[in-house]
Design a protein around this nucleic acid. Sequence first.
DNA 1: ATTGGGACCTGCTCGC
DNA 2: TGCGAGCAGGTCCCAA
Length: 281
Amino acid sequence: MPELPEVETIKRGLLPRLRGKVIRRVIIPDDSRGSRLLRRYPSKRSFIRKLTGRRIITLKRRAKYLLLHLDTNEILIIHLGMSGQLLLLPDRSVAPPYTRLILKIAAAGRLCLIDPRKFGEVYLFSKKEGHTTIDPFSLGPEPLLKSFTPEVLGRSLKKSRSVIKTVLLDQKIVAGLGNIYTDEALFRAGIHPRRRSSGLTGREIERLFQGIREVLREAINLHGTTAADRRYVDSKGEPGRFQARLNVYQRKGERCPRCGAIIETVKLGGRTAHFCPHCQK
DNA sequence: ATTGGGACCTGCTCGC
DNA sequence: TGCGAGCAGGTCCCAA
């Protein structure tokens, strides 16, 4: 579900409510197949022990990961997978169905991670001495930072032999894009998703760079995309509003807002790419 | 070494 | 109405 703009929205919503607060209790509800949530963290017991009583210093986002910096040298890392939600609910509310993790936060409420499909994952990462940023996943550049430039993008695209749609989904190339925003960025750039990334011209790379930046900024401003199934909501349960601005994603069979041609889809790398056959060459 | 395909999960929608 | 197939915002793992 959540791509960069959705995770950014969740982070912004939670930051003022969680900053400086203490985690009083950690609950991982029983799961018949054990906790897949902690599949890369060695021990549920030590996870709970290390979190309990910790103060949350700040919240950050890296790509699609939410990072809770604790008053120890550790960071709680949350990834919401395909179907994850993070809701901060009042103290005495009942945990919704599919709640996989509950953090009881003093003077804030219950932070519930809800995840029907169990693709979400959490773990604790220890900050190394002298490192201010963490990067355990060898992620590529943050697309909204200054360090991301058309040249940086272009160099990565030249190296790959794959199709541009697939390459943009690779988190090592650009961190934070998913199926929605790759489709929308390619539309804005006028590039067909099946083009070879190494064959793009300098001008096309420039347009793609701008397209990525613009679509992410606009989506953040509108609090992300709540698609047809309405699964994505922010930490207060509010849907996003960017879906009204989608040009191609989930608009198969509809008319292109720019030229009126019928939007098509194609399967690439196991994902559905949406595009306008007239505007995207 | 890349890269493409399947696996991991569950719920929902659509067509027969 | 019922049922099975196919689909879904992501990432990892393994065989070519």
